[in-house]
Computed example of a mutant assay.
Amino acid sequence: MRVQATQRDDARAIRDEVRDIARDAGRDPDAVRVLVDLVTVVGQDRRSAQERLDLLEELGGENGGLPEGALTHVGTAVDLADLLEDWFDAGAADGFTLRPASLDTDLRAIVGGTVPVLQADGVFRQTYPGTTLRDTLGLPRPASRYAAAQ
């Protein structure tokens, strides 16, 4: 489930609530993943990232056309890795839906800067565990409702 939260404690409360609802419904709460929506503006330093956000706001109007309600990171690739680790370690998220403000600039910074830091810290995979998103998220395959009908 993808959620929007701009504060770590709010995200943790949402995640706890989702897990409680799953448990109350008789489902394994560990089979539910809560992903925080995160917009990224990444620069070589915080100042250049802020300048890019200012330009986006100038070109795109209020909030630079960035989604409202989503957590927004404006800083370096290493700062982004620190934020991801902090929220994950605090139990605020099982993962993140990263949305680069600029595919060319921000995606390159995430792949070339943030991912290697997370891998070096042992919190991001080096290889994929399977071929599906379910495999990647470590979720069990649900029983087929059609198999039960036969």
Score class of each variant (00 low, 15 high):
M1I: 13
V36L: 06
L84G: 01
A149N: 09
D135N: 09
R99G: 09
A70I: 11
P116N: 07
D24C: 12
Q7F: 12
R33E: 07
L118E: 03
A13D: 11
R23F: 12
E68T: 14
A77N: 07
R23E: 06
D79G: 14
R12E: 09
V111E: 04
D45T: 07
G91K: 03
P100T: 06
R2P: 12
I110A: 04
A90F: 01
L103D: 09
A22F: 02
P140R: 10
L133Q: 08
P67R: 12
R2I: 15
R47F: 13
D10N: 14
S102R: 08
F88A: 13
E17L: 14
A92N: 03
R99L: 14
G130W: 09
M1L: 08
D86E: 06
R19Y: 05
A149H: 15
P67I: 10
L59Q: 11
A49V: 05
D121S: 11
L118N: 05
D30E: 11
N63C: 09
E62G: 04
E17Q: 15
V39G: 01
A148I: 15
A90Q: 02
F124W: 11
R99Y: 10
E85R: 12
Q119T: 10
E17I: 12
P140V: 10
S48R: 11
A148E: 13
T114F: 05
Q7Y: 14
V39H: 05
Q150G: 14
L137F: 05
R141N: 14
A31G: 09
A70T: 14
S102A: 13
G112R: 08
G95P: 01
A148D: 15
A147D: 13
D135P: 01
S102E: 15
V18T: 04
V115F: 07
L56E: 01
G122P: 04
S144Y: 11
A148C: 08
L103H: 10
E17G: 13
G69A: 02
Q126G: 15
L83S: 04
R145T: 15
V74I: 08
D106P: 00
F88C: 09
F96Y: 01
I14N: 07
P116V: 02
Y128H: 11
D9K: 09
A147K: 13
G69V: 06
D20T: 15
D106L: 06
D54F: 09
R33S: 10
D28H: 06
D121R: 12
L98F: 01
T6D: 06
A31Q: 13
E58R: 13
A22Y: 07
E17C: 15
I21K: 09
D10Q: 15
R23L: 11
D82G: 00
V36W: 00
P67K: 11
T114M: 06
A101R: 00
R12S: 02
E57L: 06
L59E: 11
